[in-house]
Amino acid sequence: MIDLRLAHERGQANFGWLDSKHTFSFGSYHDAKHMGYSALRVINDDKVEPGAGFGTHGHKDMEILSYVTQGVIAHKDSMGNVKHLPVGEFQLMSAGSGITHSEYNASDTDDLTFLQIWIVPDSQGGKPGYQQKDFGQAQGLTKIMTQTGQDGTLKVKQDASLSQLILAPGTSLTLAIDSERNTYIHQVVGEININQRCLKQGDGAKINQLTTLFLSNQGAQSASALVFDLP
């Protein structure tokens, strides 16, 4: 079964300096039908004005993934990390027993856009952690995050994985999935077809009870998406 979550149906919050679109319930946006999907709790599509950002705030017992699509995040946290996160790199914070951090648009002239993704961990507490890595822009599927951190992937505290999908125009691939698990695909750039269902930028797809996905790019530009394998 494929259940689409269309971009224009998402919740929205606009604070002037921040324009955020919420795939799942978050902040003042609440929809009992969209509280998350399996261990995937939040996908916020954030646009931050030049020089603005999120002041120091706290989290605990959450795996927080950030992926920049335009601009650079200036990051500071209570573990002593002072980092810049540019386009194409992935950052994973394990909040564990507690962490504080800030995220700002590093530019005074250009907008910042990024995805903030929360995954509920399979255990609470523990030492907070920070990981950041560029996995390149290879065609097809590139594994980004796993529970074990195998093959240089980011290590997440959940029986879950994330892959980056990039398809050039006119290309396709077949993906075998476990019908007893849950798959979620979030479209980042361009369009892809999933078993003849079209995903456009900002769209998502909840997928279960299937064993095979046929993914194709029938558009005129390169397409990219995030593919989650979830319990």
Rank of each mutant, 00 (worst) to 15 (best):
M1T: 13
M1A: 13
E9I: 01
G11Y: 05
G16W: 04
W17G: 09
L18M: 13
F26R: 02
G27F: 01
D31C: 06
M35K: 04
M35E: 05
G36D: 01
A39M: 10
L40I: 02
V42A: 06
N44P: 08
G55T: 12
K60W: 01
V68Y: 07
V68T: 08
T69M: 10
Q70D: 10
K76Y: 07
H84N: 14
H84A: 10
L92R: 05
I99V: 15
Y104N: 09
A106N: 14
D110K: 14
D111H: 09
L112R: 08
T113M: 03
G125N: 09
F135A: 00
G136W: 14
Q137V: 09
Q137A: 12
L141Q: 10
M145A: 03
L154Y: 06
K155E: 14
A160P: 05
A160E: 09
L162I: 08
L173W: 13
S179W: 05
S179Q: 11
E180T: 10
R181L: 15
N182P: 01
N182Y: 12
T183Y: 01
Y184A: 04
H186E: 04
V188R: 05
V189M: 08
G190E: 02
N193A: 13
D203C: 02
L210F: 12
T212E: 15
G219S: 15
A220E: 15
Q221Y: 04
Q221F: 03
A223P: 04
A223D: 03
L230C: 02
